[in-house]
Design a protein around this nucleic acid. Structure first.
Lengths: 208, 208
DNA sequence: TCTTTCATACCTTACGTCGGTATGTATATT
DNA sequence: AATATACATACCGACGTAAGGTATGAAAGA
């Protein structure tokens, strides 16, 4: 079952969901057959859901941990999230299997919706609300601010979704950070910027 | 050919691209057959492309007209765009066929990419650059600002993509307008807000 | 006569079903 | 304790069927 998931994940990323057939998955399963797949998953789409769940669960767990820390105020937690999300080793791996989302609008869409429907209200919102309480963040619309931040960070700034050169990603990040400042949040520092450039160059190399 | 397009458009919106079969389209064509479709389009995906082209071309034409006006400065053009895009009659129609994008990640994805790859650089960017020249807009990264504005406006604030109640849409708009102010752009006024509420309520009614 | 516009029959691919097997496990019986 | 029965889990692989796409040819207009 985990084998099926990991094979499916790899193939969905490489060839795209639509262009990956059940037979493709079977061929990479080392002996297992179609029956095995349909024993564990009720449809091809069901496999996709499991794959995305796996992808988001890791990231959501990280968000939960930071959310529940007691040693940081709201703004510091926000900063911690940016640092973490940019330093996760998983990211490197993901960035190198690259073509990914261009062939996977369906996967992208479910990730986006998870961001808005789950990650924003459950993880980022409490942090922003804490920030409002402790005075480190100021806004009249915490729910919407949470959505906006995650959407811009996860989608627009994601080179897997909107292809960007190193330079473009850097500029996006500057605009993003300017946007946050507009909301009174200066959470971007040198570490983050450096790491970002590094990541993008990894991604660029893998696409040559 | 236009018949095929309009039927396909309606069905894609109602049932989603994936769940609309060629046969479905044929059945609504009133006599025409598969041969007719494949005479005009080389694949099902080709139909989708034509549909999205049609959708974007109308909106892009509006952008071009505003871009080429000579009686407005940059900021005023931005404002004009918001007013227009929110007042277009097409919008009403689109908003009422509703389920749409939830079932259409592929269509959504190509619209998003058109926004970033075409609309932003060709229409909004020149306007922002004019604004920089005439002093009505200030930014170091006009390309990225153009992308960000269009992405937030077209995607996040679009109730067809991310379902929103009237109240939520209003709050999103407030956050959006606060974001623009952060970039020194105050382009939102009462007219726009009113129209926005009206639109969202139309959309809500159609989903009951 | 040649091109455009379609209709029809057919091909191919790929999802999902279904009957069947094999192995393990829990419970009841002797 | 040993065996039998019942059920559950994991899996195989042929087949049905739907859907995208092709090939061919006819009709009609230029």
């Amino acid at each position: 079952m985990n084998l099926i998931l990991s094979v499916a994940y790899r193939l969905f990323m490489e060839k795209g969901y639509e262009h990956t057939s059940i037979q493709d998955i079977i061929d990479h399963l080392g002996g297992l057959s179609k029956g095995a797949i349909y024993h564990h998953f009720k449809s091809k789409e069901d496999i996709l859901i499991a794959v995305t769940d796996q992808m988001t669960s890791e990231s959501n767990q990280m968000l939960a941990e930071i959310r529940d820390r007691t040693d940081l105020n709201g703004r510091e937690k926000l900063k911690a999230i940016f640092k973490e999300s940019i330093n996760r080793p998983v990211q490197n791996e993901i960035y190198t299997v690259a073509p990914s989302f261009h062939k996977n609008p369906k996967l992208l869409f479910s990730l986006l919706h998870d961001t808005i429907d789950c990650a924003a209200p459950n993880y980022l919102l409490p942090i922003i609300q804490q920030g409002i309480s402790d005075g480190s963040i100021e806004t009249d619309y915490p729910e919407q601010l949470a959505e906006l931040i995650l959407l811009v960070a996860n989608a627009w700034m994601n080179p897997m979704i909107f292809d960007s050169s190193v330079d473009e990603t850097y500029r996006k990040f500057m605009v993003f950070s300017q946007m946050l400042e507009g909301f009174g949040l200066d959470v971007v520092d040198e570490d983050i910027l450096e790491r970002l450039e590094e990541l993008t160059s990894i991604y660029q190399k893998s696409r040559q």
